[in-house]
Amino acid sequence: MNWLSRNIDAVLELTGYHLVIALLPVLFGLVISIPLGWVANRWPVARAILVPVAGIMYTIPSLVLFLILPPLLGTRVLDEINVIIALTIYTVALLVRSVADALAAVPPHVIAAADAMGYRPVRRFFGVELPLAVPVLVAGLRVATVSNISLTSVAAILGVPQLGSLFTDGFAVENYDEIVVAIILIFLLAMVFDGLLLLAGRLLTPWARAGRAVGAAK
């Protein structure tokens, strides 16, 4: 592992790029899928279109998406923006259905009670429906995050710098240390962020844990 100690600065820099490229799309994806999920839950027709389309989007191979986006968007092939947009699409594809399902799972009597208390629609959404969707949302976010952290490395083929670059570089100069370091780092990042999301989800939903404890006791 001498290689690592000699190149620690470069590796850290690549790790930083890697996280930005992998995690920004999670954030963007979340912000986009909440209204889309709301629309899908609100109108059956919208759901009948959005959910299958999201499923199809998710099946497009990442490399194909990385390559067709530049001509579509008018960006340069090397731009990391292409990767960020591609991963945002995957995240949205994953989350739209989760959001729609989570909103549909809010019990009708809870919604009726909120209306009867005098909630207006927007406040009801953010104050009642969305918080109740958090457990399902967090589950979706964890999948998206892990998947993005691993997919980001594919962008190395386009020459966008991130931890995946260590693969291409390592293969080119036959430096296997470099490849092992990249694999371990990507794995660790996925584990750490998955764990962080799990923890954040727990902290945000103490009520869900109370519910599980009651369920287990019954």
Partner: peptide, 22 residues
């Protein structure tokens, strides 16, 4: 306005309809 009207009337339903997250 419905929201204001409702705040002036208590409402209780069969399943209680409590907010599970509060």
């Amino acid at each position: 306005e419905p929201a204001l009207l409702r705040r002036g009337m208590g409402y209780v339903i069969q399943q209680a309809g409590l907010f599970p997250h509060r």
